[in-house]
Design a protein around this nucleic acid. Sequence first.
DNA 1: CTAATGCCGACCAACGAGGTCGGAGACCTG
DNA 2: CAGGTCTCCGACCTCGTTGGTCGGCATTAG
Lengths: 175, 175
Amino acid sequence: MLGLSKKSDYALLALSYLATNGESRTVRTKEIAERFAIPAELLAKVMQRLAKMGWLASSPGPSGGYTLAVSDTSITVGDVVRAVDGGSALTHCMQSPEASGCEQWANCTIRGPLGFVNERVQDVLNHIPIRDIRERATPASAESELVKLVARDHSAPAAARRAGASRSRNEGDTP
Amino acid sequence: MLGLSKKSDYALLALSYLATNGESRTVRTKEIAERFAIPAELLAKVMQRLAKMGWLASSPGPSGGYTLAVSDTSITVGDVVRAVDGGSALTHCMQSPEASGCEQWANCTIRGPLGFVNERVQDVLNHIPIRDIRERATPASAESELVKLVARDHSAPAAARRAGASRSRNEGDTP
DNA sequence: CTAATGCCGACCAACGAGGTCGGAGACCTG
DNA sequence: CAGGTCTCCGACCTCGTTGGTCGGCATTAG
Ligand code: FES
Ligand code: FES
């Protein structure tokens, strides 16, 4: 349905909460869960994945919890979605270079243009750090960031994911 | 997973095929289905929805089929996704004004910023007409600012392609 | 030690996507 | 004009993924 899953939603929620309210304090999962009225166990699972990704520091035991381990500007919603939701591509074909298994690959005529659209969407997602996902104040900051994104050229950080649609010239591909 | 469904994929495929190869000819569903190796019945359902939306004209009986009923620049991929896939919002909360039923509405702190992100994504999708979803990315029209955005990143191949892509029909497409 | 917290795996339910079926109407053949 | 066949059309069903739950184990403050 072209919508990110609830897990991504919860992850964004928790990360924004940690970035706002967890300066150097350990925040328990239950606290976040009760704060946002979401199932605690599911959020726990999401938190685990975030911790495994290296973005959260965990401390077990009583008075334990999670702490944001990285800067709130180094993670973007694209990263979060990709980590917690497993990929963030418009179609399965352009998820990985050629591990698609898409039967329409040979005949597909929309792969190229759709790849461009996908790249645009990914760019939008990859340029919103979680710092901008906050209370819904900060309209100036977020807006300026996005305006810069839309209006100006973006250079390096988008080179991470290399869209496999680079060469669309070959007629006879080798499966 | 933040991916459009296969139905949307098929719809885009069929629409691009109709816009390219169905100038004023009735094209059968089976033709498109065999052309792209997709299940005919499922594509039939997609076609029905497209027809119901007013974008295709249907004629039953032998030598019947579908014809593109509107200009190929008046439908965007956003419209297609929204019609065939049922909404194209990042979260269910921002699908309709208040028919969300999202329990986190009261406490959600990311609704505002995420709405902005959603708007960006929708903008991307709403500015790509199906005319631009064709054999290759040849934004000959170059009317919308988004097409310019798309063309910027890959400006060299696009410019090279644009030289001889003014009115070229399908070339070398007979498997 | 005990209690509270994170960590991990398996498990289940529900919804939607993907796929399939038989029917109704219109063209073509004779 | 009647039958056959080809096409759309709508309802139906199956299956995979997502969302959600449970119990058990390791770890650490008090
Ligand atoms: S649909 Fe998979 S390659 Fe186009
Ligand atoms: S998650 Fe529904 S309003 Fe934010």
